[in-house]
C-alpha cells in the first residue's frame, strides 16, 4: 500500500514537472521553485536504501535477468562511464541508475512516458570501482541488476 501511494506521488511529480518547465521557460518562476519536482532527498542520500526509498518508494528489489546493463569492465575514465540499461519487463514504468561507490549513489531516474521503452543510455561519473546498479519498476515492483565497473587511476594525465 505504501508503495502505491509513493508511486502516485512520484508520477504526480512528473506531471507537475512538465508544468513547471513551461513556467520557467516563460520566466515566471524563481529558480528555487524549479527544484519542487526533483527528488532532492533521493539524490542527496548517502545510502542505496535511502536513495531508493525516496526515488522509487521502496528499497527492496529482486534481481532480474530481464534487465541488461551495458557498461565497461574497466572505465577508461571515471568521469565518463558509458552506461546503457534496458529491460524486457512488462509494464516498466521507471528506471533508477546508481553508482554504488559514489558518495551520493543515485545518479539518475528515468520515468517512461507515452510509448517509451525501458531502454536508456547515458554517461556517468564514478568515483571508484564499484557496481553500477539499475532498478526497474514494473508492475509496482522493483527489479534490479548490477554490473561491476573498475575505476582506476590513470598515468597519462597530461
Amino acid at each position: 500500500m505504501t508503495t502505491n501511494i509513493k508511486r502516485r506521488v512520484f508520477l504526480k511529480g512528473s506531471v507537475a514537472a512538465g508544468t513547471v518547465g513551461i513556467a520557467v521557460g516563460a520566466g515566471l518562476l524563481a529558480p528555487q521553485a524549479v527544484l519542487a519536482a526533483w527528488p532532492k532527498a533521493a539524490f542527496e542520500a548517502k545510502s542505496i536504501d535511502d536513495a531508493l526509498k525516496n526515488a522509487m518508494g521502496d528499497a527492496s528489489s529482486s534481481a532480474s535477468d530481464a534487465i541488461k546493463i551495458k557498461a565497461p569492465d574497466i572505465a577508461e575514465n571515471g568521469a565518463v562511464v558509458p552506461v546503457s540499461v534496458s529491460a524486457s519487463l512488462d509494464g516498466a514504468e521507471s528506471i533508477a541508475l546508481l553508482a554504488e561507490g559514489n558518495a551520493q549513489p543515485l545518479v539518475a531516474t528515468f520515468a517512461m512516458g507515452a510509448g517509451a521503452l525501458a531502454d536508456v543510455s547515458t554517461r556517468i561519473k564514478m568515483g571508484k570501482t564499484s557496481d553500477v546498479i539499475a532498478i526497474v519498476k514494473a508492475g509496482g515492483k522493483l527489479h534490479s541488476a548490477r554490473k561491476s565497473v573498475k575505476v582506476t587511476i590513470g598515468g597519462c594525465g597530461g
Binding site: 526533483w38 527528488p39 539524490f43 543515485l106 545518479v107 512516458g113 556517468i124
Partner: peptide, 12 residues
C-alpha cells in the same frame, strides 16, 4: 511526455 529524467551531478 515520452520521458522524464531526473539527474544529479553524477551525470558526466
Amino acid at each position: 511526455t515520452v520521458m522524464t529524467a531526473y539527474w544529479s551531478g553524477g551525470i558526466s
